[in-house]
Design a binder for these strands. Structure first.
Lengths: 328, 328
DNA sequence: ATGGCATGAGAAAACGTTTTCAATCGATAG
DNA sequence: CTATCGATTGAAAACGTTTTCTCATGCCAT
């Protein structure tokens, strides 16, 4: 039995309503306000957020739905989201979907039951395309991946451009047989593949792309199988940090020289990219900015529900390192 | 205006109480249960969790308070906690304290206002020692670091032993001037330092330890300053993954050969440890198990509030790699 | 046939707040 | 001197559930 606002009122000799007003910022005389604060301090009162949320009908809670918080990209994004959210007096509920549409649906339902103020969502391709954000009952900001048709706010990387940039970098450095490893569940993977393919076609080169499950292990297995083949590439583009990690492991296990026998390049400037010899060439995403902007857009949307949806497209930054050194 | 249980009752032609019972698992006849389910489906009813929590007086929510979810150790632990929690029908609120005691106090207060069922807490040394878990109002499971006096559940690594193990490994490989880099806020850093110092003293060797803020940048700066000194070690132990990352960066920037001029060893088998040439020797923590066991202990505690507190001490596993190769 | 007794259902209370509504009071304007 | 107004305050309703109580019904044992 915890102490409630009633106990405070009794102790301070005022009404329940006055306590509520003194704690929020209602109009209350300095004298009573002082009495209330004294009583609160004396009995160690803590407001019950469930009751407050029920009565006031807004939860000051946002959901953050990502595929896997263990992916450093989402960790960093999530951290930025939380910082902005807590600073705005909102709480964050984190959900990991493992790129599983069933889990996505389950968590979306949970968000409805929580009556969240809004959701920041990195959806799989399937869900992003099918999602009807209007009937959800709360605003959604898409991150990383956006549904083609989704009429809602989003903050994204210019994936096509970034992938093309990577290919052109490799072409410049003298590589020709360029392969690609892409995630098979996200629209991000698809877009990066599109930019990859376009750039190669512009150069009149064949595109050799493989799609894998979005995990380091899958990428490692795929590349391990690919390396001994005749079609094995001279340079490889990996569609995100996890896949690049897997690729690097496969390369190391096979004892393949980087970049002499195989150049590597990918996405996400994770902490190890600099450290793995000879340094990984990557497109760095502005991870902190993505999370911050997403949360800010959500807050903006809550203030102005009728504002037309907006998509913020951020640019990646090419960080060239030893793994794509110019060909001898 | 969302649909409430009242609307469902009206639509199904039964009382509110019956709807509640049909949705929970109260005793209700099959006929009415079917009618209720039909009505729920028809009007798309979603229970309001705030109301449910207020009335039923349990929130089915746990808090997870860590220093920084960007640290791969906490990411992995957090992921395991969430998996177990969601499977048990509980939600997780994540809080990042940045090892700041003020933030810790703030989040602890927030947890009280949320009326959480319990908290899993990686506290700083200061907080862990001062914390009075009895007056918090909810059970706490400490992870990673435990207060000396804290009379509550905990799941920890045998830090002393692990650090000593690391030192003995280096001694075996022929290193003598062994330095250490330890975090200056956590009790973990202190314990690992203790094990480190003991092992060196047993061997009759001097202990050269430096304490730094718990971040890769701080470790990098410290080691960069240390390397040129006369007292620079032949081998370095870093107290966690972040510090080891910083150390590796400093070593790389200074062009120091590993392990020829400086051997490296540390904690946490993060994904890059294998990849950073020549491979990092580390004590691997059972991260997934730590998170899982912590959450399971919390559930257990909720079932049996009066059970005496229990500490689970898990062992680390030494993974020897090239960074600690036997001395020539 | 009658008195428990288990079962299923509804009415209403309760959870701890915020918010609306009405009331009191002092002061200022007419 | 009185009527009106603004500022505070308290009483009570409301938020959407779960849970306690009460009651009706049918069944079994006496």
């Amino acid at each position: 039995m915890t102490t409630s606002i009633k106990d405070v009122a009794l102790l301070a000799g005022v009404s329940v309503a006055t306590v509520s007003r003194a704690l929020g910022n209602g109009p209350v005389s300095p004298a009573l306000r002082a009495k209330v604060e004294a009583a609160v301090a004396q009995c160690g009162y803590r407001p019950n957020l469930s009751a407050r949320r029920l009565r006031s009908q807004h939860t000051r809670t946002v959901g953050l739905i990502v595929s896997d918080i263990c992916n450093p990209f989402f960790t960093a994004v999530g951290r930025a989201v939380e910082d902005v959210a807590y600073r705005a007096g909102m709480r964050v509920i984190l959900c990991n979907t493992d790129e599983n549409p069933d889990k996505e649906a389950m968590y979306l339902r949970l968000m409805q039951e929580e009556r969240v103020s809004g959701v920041i969502f990195a959806a799989t391709r399937a869900t992003a395309d099918a999602l009807d954000t209007a009937e959800l009952g709360f605003p959604v900001v898409m991150i990383d991946r956006a549904g083609a048709a989704a009429r809602c706010d989003a903050v994204l990387l210019d994936n096509r451009l970034a992938a093309a940039q990577l290919v052109e970098h490799l072409l410049e450095r003298g590589y020709r047989r360029i392969g690609g490893l892409f995630g098979n569940t996200s629209s991000t993977g698809a877009e990066r593949h599109a930019g990859f393919a376009e750039a190669l076609q512009r150069a009149g080169l064949p595109v050799a792309a493989r799609f894998v499950a979005p995990s380091a292990a899958a990428a490692q297995a795929e590349l391990a199988a690919w390396l001994p083949e005749e079609t094995a590439p001279e340079a490889l583009v990996a569609s995100n940090g996890l896949l690049l990690l897997g690729a690097a492991k496969a390369v190391r296990a096979a004892g393949v020289a980087v970049p002499q026998r195989l150049a590597l390049a990918g996405f996400d400037n994770d902490s190890w990219m600099e450290l793995a010899e000879p340094g990984m060439t990557v497109i760095e995403q502005p991870v902190e900015e993505i999370g911050r902007v997403a949360m800010e857009m959500l807050l903006e949307r809550l203030r102005q529900p009728e504002r037309p949806p907006r998509k913020v497209v951020l640019a990646g930054r090419l960080v060239a390192r030893g793994s794509s050194l110019a060909r001898a």
